[in-house]
Amino acid sequence: MDLATPAAGRITTATVRTGSLRTGGAALNWRADQVTTNVVLVHGSFDDHTSWDRIVPLLPHDITAIRYDRRGHSRSSAPAGRSGLHDHAGDLVSVITELAGGAAHLVGHSYGALVALMTAARHPELVSSVLVHEPPAFPLLADDPQGEPLRAEARAHVTTVAAHIEAGRQDEAVALFAEKVAFGPRWRELFPQPQRAVLAANAHTYLDQFHDPDHYALDLEALATDRVPITVTVGTDGPAAVRRCTQLLADRLPAATVETLTGAGHAPHLSHPDEFAAALARHLGRVRRS
């Protein structure tokens, strides 16, 4: 791996640093704020690193918050051809090794949570801990009496989302995904117009996710080994399918800590940043005491 910025771009002082990291044929745009304990923030579908803007100022002062645009999103490039969950996990490994000095705590939202969990399962030596909010592990809904109808409904919606994107109707795709799959009917309150433009500009990346046969892959056996401390957060007001996924995942990870964020939905870092930052601080405190 090579840094487009000098090797001295690694985070060693209390400053804001930005740069570009080349990995796996992609160039990832990244930003790091503050110092000491390295925390890498991984955004979800359609989004980019700016989705964490409300969280970073609320973090403890000893945190180095490293965030980046996943490949193909906003200012990060991607090689020709389809990219999948394994590619995103490989990128995260590069971010950890090149920017965080070889170990980091991971925070993932939605699809970014799947990226973080795959990385923890495959490279526990690089991952100090993981906090994830509502990973959309839809295969867990199969054969679940409560979850199977929710999975079928979600599948129908995302199929239409992909069709809209392929037809060039990005705004329609974003609206359908946001309202019916991820955030609910009040999604526009979470995403002012400039942020909606980001979602529309990144809509094409969702096709890779949609067509990836491993896009919801989780190695539950590896994650249940207790080698990496895991906290799973879930909102009380998010889409039923994603909440059920999270409940079933927590059942499969008996060592994980589960925190419910009352009043929050699928994007607490946007709707309830104080509560989400506090949950992260509690998570880090538990890890440090263990």
Results as ranks from 00 to 15, higher is better:
9 G>D: 15
188 R>S: 11
68 Y>I: 04
72 G>N: 11
13 T>M: 05
87 D>G: 05
40 V>T: 13
179 E>W: 04
269 H>T: 12
64 T>C: 14
14 A>L: 14
68 Y>Q: 00
287 V>C: 07
154 A>L: 11
120 A>M: 03
267 A>P: 07
30 W>Y: 12
144 D>K: 05
38 N>W: 05
144 D>P: 01
178 A>H: 01
104 A>M: 05
191 F>V: 02
152 A>V: 13
10 R>D: 10
260 T>C: 03
2 D>G: 10
53 D>Q: 02
40 V>L: 11
92 L>S: 07
170 Q>W: 14
215 H>D: 09
189 E>R: 09
164 H>N: 05
129 S>E: 09
40 V>Y: 04
178 A>M: 12
6 P>Y: 13
205 T>I: 11
37 T>G: 06
59 L>S: 06
250 A>T: 00
109 H>P: 00
228 V>P: 03
110 S>Q: 14
137 A>I: 04
244 R>Q: 04
254 P>A: 12
138 F>Y: 15
42 V>N: 08
196 R>T: 12
267 A>G: 09
103 A>K: 08
67 R>Y: 07
172 E>F: 10
38 N>Q: 15
186 R>V: 07
104 A>W: 01
251 D>M: 12
160 T>Y: 00
78 A>H: 05
165 I>H: 02
141 L>S: 04
161 V>R: 01
49 H>A: 14
45 S>F: 11
123 H>Y: 06
145 P>H: 12
43 H>M: 08
128 S>D: 15
223 L>M: 04
145 P>V: 08
50 T>H: 15
55 I>R: 03
285 G>F: 05
7 A>T: 11
232 V>E: 03
117 L>A: 07
18 T>I: 13
58 L>Y: 02
77 S>W: 05
261 L>A: 05
37 T>D: 14
171 D>L: 14
273 P>M: 13
73 H>N: 07
4 A>C: 08
41 L>H: 02
139 P>M: 14
239 P>H: 12
68 Y>R: 00
22 R>Y: 09
66 I>S: 06
214 D>M: 14
271 S>Q: 07
228 V>Y: 03
151 R>C: 08
160 T>L: 10
13 T>G: 05
129 S>W: 10
143 D>E: 10
53 D>R: 11
125 E>N: 10
126 L>H: 07
22 R>N: 09
79 P>W: 04
242 V>W: 06
180 K>Q: 15
289 R>I: 03
28 L>N: 06
17 R>D: 09
175 A>I: 09
142 A>H: 13
94 S>A: 15
41 L>W: 09
195 Q>L: 15
99 L>V: 05
67 R>Q: 11
195 Q>D: 11
216 Y>Q: 03
241 A>V: 00
51 S>C: 02
97 T>A: 14
155 R>F: 10
184 G>N: 06
112 G>R: 07
131 L>V: 08
175 A>K: 06
131 L>G: 01
279 A>G: 06
275 E>V: 15
72 G>I: 11
132 V>F: 08
156 A>S: 12
264 A>L: 00
148 E>F: 09
143 D>M: 09
181 V>N: 02
133 H>C: 01
188 R>C: 03
88 H>N: 10
256 A>Q: 03
153 E>G: 04
45 S>Q: 06
141 L>A: 01
156 A>G: 14
85 L>Q: 10
52 W>R: 01
